[in-house]
């Protein structure tokens, strides 16, 4: 967490978000902000509403109440693909890759929001389309090098081991060169070595490209190491919000995690 001037203005702010499914209250009156260039973590026990929060931010869920502000503007209700086009990329807790497509093709789909040539040029694969295709291919090759996944460039991702799939999914999100990157449990189910690799990638992305990152993670050690600020959710409510030190010493957080009130 080098020089503090890497952190800028607020890029995204959620205000008083409430979301429920039938009788289940997934989120209750949640507000917090994410600043440009920071690594922001969301933690909390199972079912706390962490994934639901990301789904609200990237448009899969639409809250009954509350507002989402992105880059200084209040956002109208949007579909996920529209949010993606605004520069928000994400990965999923249970991996959503194109399983039948190669690693390279998966990463190329990450470039879709940046590709502009029309269908006509694409159809004859000439003029601007061919040039564009090669340009984006080059960018994707950079990411492949960065993540060290050259060996699996042509492998259909469905055949890759779990840890590798997580890495490819990160690659696809990076390929979009997002302004805001949302990672839902990027290290779930990984062994120690894979976790260390993933942590390093996250830090490098944040350092080198200045990408704003919001991540959900259960491994408290990892979270404390990586994040600038942490939001803690429990039963859909916000329990605490602050730097790792503040959160670590918060009595409510300690109670929630030590299971004072529930398991």
């Amino acid at each position: 967490m080098s020089g503090e001037n890497r952190i800028g203005d607020t890029i995204l702010e959620v205000k008083n978000i409430s979301l429920s499914f039938g009788g289940v209250k997934a989120l209750t009156d949640i507000s917090f902000d994410i600043k440009e260039g920071e690594v922001r973590a969301i933690i909390g026990p199972n079912g706390a509403g962490k994934s639901s929060m990301l789904n609200v931010i990237n448009g899969f869920y639409h809250p009954q109440q509350g507002e989402v502000w992105f880059r200084g503007k209040k956002r109208v209700a949007m579909k996920p693909y529209q949010v993606a086009r605004q520069g928000v990329a994400r990965t999923f807790q249970n991996i959503a890759l194109f399983k039948g497509m190669s690693t390279l093709d998966n990463l190329m789909t990450g470039r879709i929001t940046h590709m502009k040539t029309n269908l006509f040029w694409q159809s004859i694969w000439a003029g601007p389309a061919a040039k564009e295709e090669l340009e984006h291919r080059e960018r994707v090759e950079h990411i492949i090098d960065f993540l060290g996944i050259q060996a699996i460039r042509k492998t259909p991702v469905g055949r890759l081991p779990y840890g590798m799939q997580k890495r490819v999914e990160l690659g696809r999100a990076l390929a979009a060169e997002p302004k805001l990157l949302l990672l839902d449990e990027p290290m779930a189910g990984m062994n120690q070595e894979e976790k260390e690799d993933m942590s390093r990638f996250i830090l490098d992305v944040n350092d080198e490209f200045g990408t704003t990152i919001t991540l959900i993670e259960h491994d408290i050690g990892v979270v404390m190491d990586l994040s600038d600020r942490i939001v803690v959710l429990d039963y859909g409510c916000k329990l605490a919000d602050g730097t790792p030190d503040v959160v670590r010493n918060d009595q409510d957080v300690i109670n929630a995690y030590l299971g004072v009130s529930h398991d």
């Binding site: 994400r90 399983k99 929001t113």
Partner: peptide
Amino acid sequence: RAVADDHQAALTVG
């Protein structure tokens, strides 16, 4: 091909 493979992922990449 992306849409044929996975709708959720397709939406996510825009």
